[in-house]
């Protein structure tokens, strides 16, 4: 089975400073990779590199099928309705909207403007956007922020259904999603960049 994502020897920077180095990972279909580590370790920076938004300082990312990336801002327009928001992203990816609203428990809100949704409902809409992209690999940065217990369970159910259908996900999160039987945990603490690692441009050595 071919991997949906393969990364080798990544060095990841934030603000011009290396934060993680030597990160290698593989994500197979049907698997979930959970990124763990204290605040500031570089989870978001790593996810952005995996999504292709930022280049790594070193190493390479191979992701043949593309990704669906969801960060804290979920790409929703408050003046559009739930249906219009989802239809736009589905159309852009050449996919049908399908049963995404039902699966994220948004069916009753379909004609409401996104501005009138609660924080948790907006978050669910943001996750429904992932469903309509039709992408197999999801990259999720703290996806359960502002979700209540029931919504977290709903979200875990959606992830389970996604990976059971051959999808995969890389999730940066602190909480347990109850997906232990199909997930690996990557502790990023072990990949912390050493201070001696070259700063870009070699400015720290300029005077030695």
């Amino acid at each position: 089975m071919t991997a949906l994502l393969e990364a080798k020897g990544l060095t990841v920077e934030r603000g011009g400073v290396p934060v993680l180095e030597g990160v290698s990972l593989t994500v197979e279909p049907g698997r979930v990779l959970v990124l763990r580590g204290p605040n500031g370790i570089g989870k978001t920076s790593l996810l952005r590199v995996l999504a292709g938004l930022a280049p790594p300082l070193a190493g390479e990312v191979d992701c043949p099928g593309g990704t669906a990336y969801a960060a804290h801002a979920d790409g929703l327009k408050p003046t559009l309705t739930v249906a219009e928001n989802l239809a736009f992203w589905a159309d852009l990816h050449g996919q049908p909207v399908g049963d995404a609203p039902e699966r994220m428990n948004l069916a009753g809100l379909i004609d409401r403007q996104a501005a009138s949704l609660s924080a948790g409902q907006k978050r669910r809409l943001g996750l429904a956007r992932l469903l309509v992209t039709g992408r197999a690999l999801w990259l999720l940065d703290e996806p359960t922020v502002s979700l209540d217990t029931a919504s977290v369970a709903l979200f875990a159910g959606v992830i389970t259904a996604h990976v059971e259908a051959g999808g995969a996900a890389v999730i940066a999160t602190h909480i347990a999603l109850g997906l232990e039987d199909r997930s690996e945990v990557l502790e990023l603490g072990g990949y912390k960049a050493r201070p001696a690692t070259h700063a870009p441009g070699g400015f720290d050595e300029a005077f030695q």
Binding site: A70, A73, D74, W89
Partner: peptide, 14 residues
């Protein structure tokens, strides 16, 4: 840019 649409557009197939 603020609401994350630009990131999602950058990873979209266009």
């Amino acid at each position: 840019y603020e609401d994350g649409s630009l990131e999602a557009l950058a990873t979209a197939p266009i």
